[in-house]
Write a protein that binds this DNA or RNA. Structure first.
Lengths: 214, 214, 214, 214
DNA sequence: GATGAATGAGTTTTCATTCAT
DNA sequence: TATGAATGAAAACTCATTCAT
C-alpha cells in the first residue's frame, strides 16, 4: 500500500520515482481509453500496455475510480496549459473565440488520444449513486468562461444580444463535434474546419441588422 | 433457438407474439440504458425490468450486440417518425431548420429515456475490432439531409455561402448538446433553448453583408 | 441471476432442483469451513469440493455473506431438530439440562463437521461495520431458554438461587468447550464427558445447604 | 534481512532498538486483531497503525505467521505475569480458583484488546497443513495447572471426587465465556459475573452430601 | 535498519452465453 | 417459446512477500 498519509497528518510529498510511475500509468490509461473505449478499458489492459503488473496500479492509485479522476485532471490541465496562453494573447472577443477553436484543434492534432480518453471518462464515469461524476459540473467552468467573453462583447456593442448560456453550450458543442468528426474521418481537414467554425460563430454572434424569421 | 430462416430459404416472417416480445424487451432496454448507463446495463437487469428471464432475450436476439443495434434502429425510427412530418410541413429552409430543432426538443421532452439510451449505445458500442459501430457513419444521413437543405438555401440566395458539412456537423452538435444539457439540468427551459438555438443558427447561415475578421 | 423476486412481488417458491443444489452447496461449505477454517474457506474451494463451477454459487446465493448466513440457519435448524425433542421429553429440570448436553454430544458425534463450521462462521463473520453478525444475539435465544429452565427450577425449590444469566452463559460454554475439546482430541470419550458435565452442573445448581467461601 | 544467526553459530542477541520495534509492532498487531478480527487484520493495517512501512514488519518477523506466534507468546506472558502472583498468594484451593477468575476479569478490564487479539489468533491460526497451531495444546498447561489444584483439594477432602480434566475444561470455558460475554455487552458487570462464576464453581466442586440424579 | 516499490497469486463478484427441458 | 440452470472468462481489488536502495 502506498503511504497516503503519515500519522502526522501531513500531505505526503510524492517521490520523483512515484511521480514518474503515476505519469506512466496515466499515459497508458489515456491510450487504452482512447483505443478501446470506456467499457473495455480494464486495469489489466492498462497495466499490460504500461508493461507492469496490475498490482502496481493498485499501489499508486486507490482504485480504478481514482485513476480515472486523475486522468481527467491530467488531461484537462494539459489542454488548459496549451490553450489558455494562446487565447489570452488575443485582443478582441472575436479573435479570442476563434483562437480558442484553433488552439483546441491544434492540441488535438498533436495529442490525438488525450481528448478521446477524456471524453470517454467524462461521458461514462458514474458515482456510487449512478449519477455522472462530471455531469455538466465539468463543463460549467468552460461555459462560464465563454459567457464572460460574450458579456464583455455585448457590453462593448461588438456582439449582438443573445442568451449567453445557450451560445456557450453551442460553441463548446461545436468544438467537441469538430474533434469527434475528425476522429471519425482522420483525413478531414481539421484546420479548415476550425477556421470555418470560427467564421460560423462570428456570424452567429456579431452585431448587425438582421431579421430572424425562423 | 429462434428459427432465423426456414429450409426454403425464405426470410421468416416474425409472428405477432414475437414482435410484441421484442418490443417489450427493447423498451426495457431503453429504460435500463437510460437509467444505468452503458457500462452497467446488463442483460440480467434488462430481463428483470421486463419481468422475464434472461434466456428470453437470448432467444429473441442473437446477443447483446444485436439487441443494441435493434435498440438504435428502434429509437431512431421513432424519432424520425416524429420529426420528419413536422419538418417537411415547413416551406422555407430557415423554418425547416428551426422546426427540426423544436421537434427534437418536443420529442425528448415526451420521451426522456429514448434519446439518452440511444446516445449511450451510439457512443459506446464497438464492433469486434474495437471500432465504433456508429462512428459518424450513423450521423452521415443526418448530415446529408442538412447539407441538402443548406445547398437549397444557398442556391436560392436565402443563405450565405459556407461549408455545408461543417455547418451540418455544428447544427447537429448544437441539438445534441441542447438535449444533454437539459438532461443535466432538467429545470432548464428546453423550449426557450430550442428557440434561441434556432435564432443562433439563423444568424449563422442567413445571407447578409458581413465582415468576418476572426 | 437467480430470479429472486418476480414483478408481482410474490415470494418465489424454490424449485426442487434448486433446493437440491443449495443443499449440496451448503454441505460442501460445511465441510470446507470445518476443514480449512474461516479464513481459508473460499468460494473457489467450496465449488471445487462440490464439483461445480464458482458461478453456480453466485447463481444460488447472493454472495458469500448470504451463503454463510444460510449455512448458520441450516446447521442451527438441524441441531435444534435433533436436540429439542430429546430435551422436551424429559420431565425435570435437571434431566432436561442433562439431556441437552448429551443430545448435543450425540449430534456432534454423528455430524462432526457441522458444529465446527457453525462455530467458524459464528466467531468470524462480521457485518459491514466490522461488528460480529451473530455477536451474542445468536446465543441470546439459547440463554433465554436455559434461563427459563433455571427459573422454573428455582421457583419449585428444585434449584438453589443463583444468577440465571451467568449460569446460562457458563453452561453453554461448558457444552461448547466439550465439543471443541473432542475436536482436538478425537479419542476423548465424549459420552463420558457429557455425563460428567451434567453431573458438574447438577452440583452447581441443585438446592442444598452449602457454605460458599471463595 | 534481519541476521537471525551469525556465522559463529551463536544465537544473536537482539539489540535494544530491535526489541523496541518488535514490541511496538506487536502492540499495533494486538489493536488491529482486536478491532478488525483475524480475517481483516492485514500487515498493511498493522504497519499503518504503527506508523511504519510494511517492510519493517518483514524485517523483524519472518512472516505473518511468526508475528502471530510472537503475539500469542507476548499476550500470554503478560496475562500470566498478572494473574499468577495473585493466585499463588491465596492459601486454599477454593480461594485460588476464585482469585484466578477475578484476576483474569481484572486483567481484561484493564487490557480489553489483548485477550481479544489472543482469542482471534488462537482460534484461527493454522499451520502449513491446515491444522490449528494452538488446538488445545495451548490450553494444555492451563488444564494441567487446574487439575493439580483439583487433585490437591480432592486429596485433602476439601473437594468432592470428580473428573479433573472435564472440570478444568469447563472452568476455563466459563472464564473465556465471561470475557466474551463482556466483550459483547460492555455494560455487563464483569466483577459481579466473576464473583458469581466463582460461587458457581464452588458449588460444583466442594465436597458435601449430594444425590446426583441427572 | 528501514523504506518505497513491485509482484503475482488469490479473493469475490458480474456477466454474456449456452443448453436441456 | 420460455425457463431455470450452469458455465467460464474477466473484472476490480487485497495481500503477504521480496528486494534494491
Amino acid at each position: 500500500m502506498r503511504p497516503e498519509s503519515s500519522t502526522t497528518g501531513q500531505i505526503r510529498r510524492p517521490s520523483l520515482i512515484e511521480e514518474v510511475r503515476r505519469r506512466q500509468i496515466l499515459e497508458s490509461a489515456v491510450t487504452v481509453f482512447a483505443e478501446l473505449g470506456y467499457a473495455k478499458a480494464s486495469l489489466a489492459r492498462i497495466a499490460e500496455r504500461a508493461g507492469i503488473s496490475k498490482g502496481v496500479i493498485s499501489y499508486h492509485f486507490a482504485g480504478k475510480d481514482e485513476l480515472m479522476e486523475r486522468l481527467v485532471e491530467h488531461v484537462y490541465a494539459e489542454i488548459t496549459e496549451f490553450v489558455v496562453p494562446r487565447v489570452t494573447a488575443e485582443e478582441t472577443v472575436l479573435r479570442r473565440i476563434g483562437e480558442r477553436i484553433r488552439a483546441v484543434a491544434d492540441y488535438v492534432r498533436t495529442n490525438p488520444a488525450e481528448l478521446r480518453a477524456l471524453t470517454e471518462v467524462l461521458h461514462n464515469l458514474l458515482d456510487e449513486n449512478g449519477r455522472p461524476v462530471y455531469g455538466d459540473q465539468f463543463n460549467e467552468s468552460i461555459y462560464q468562461g465563454l459567457e464572460a467573453e460574450f458579456r464583455t462583447g455585448q457590453a462593448s456593442g461588438e456582439l449582438r444580444p443573445f442568451d449567453t448560456r445557450v451560445m456557450a453550450v453551442t460553441v463548446q458543442a461545436g468544438i467537441d463535434a469538430m474533434i469527434a468528426y475528425w476522429h471519425s474521418y482522420p483525413e478531414h481537414d481539421l484546420s479548415a474546419h476550425a477556421d470555418e467554425l470560427a467564421d460560423l460563430i462570428t456570424h452567429a454572434i456579431t452585431a448587425r441588422p438582421t431579421t430572424s424569421e425562423v
